[in-house]
């Protein structure tokens, strides 16, 4: 199992680079990763989405999809695309220290 090291943080990842252990994640680490994927500063809106993802995954064991973020988290999909441009669901799951979502919708 490969692992990533940045500053004082080391965390296990899968071959794609996604976290394999959510406990190895922390908020300061997420800030660093956000800067690395081109998001820069994480605002309250970013954090709301990331915290929901972590809470929901803790409950269900599955990383929520964008659709679930919309129906269960009451997030605006358009806004999520603005906050996390490109591949929002994958980027959010990464910054939240979770596996990438596997649901189709």
């Amino acid at each position: 199992m490969p692992s990533n090291t940045i500053a004082e943080y080391t965390f296990a990842v899968n071959e794609e680079g996604f976290f394999t252990n959510r406990e190895e994640w922390s908020e300061p680490l997420a800030e660093m990763l956000a800067s690395m994927v081109g998001i820069g500063e994480l605002t309250d809106a970013h954090w709301a989405a990331l915290r929901f993802m972590r809470d929901d995954q803790a409950k269900t064991g599955v990383t929520p999809t964008l659709r679930r973020m919309q129906t269960q988290g009451k997030f605006d999909v358009k806004q999520l695309f603005t906050l996390f441009p490109g591949k929002p669901a994958k980027m959010m799951s990464y910054l939240a220290g979770l596996p990438k979502p596997v649901g189709c919708v």
């Binding site: 990533n4 090291t5 680079g17 081109g38 490109g86």
Partner: peptide, 18 residues
């Protein structure tokens, strides 16, 4: 933007830009 350290595995988020 922080640079990616050597040996660091970063998932591809490139999408359109990549």
């Amino acid at each position: 933007m922080r640079t990616v350290p050597e040996g660091f595995i970063l998932p591809s988020f490139g999408g359109a830009s990549a």
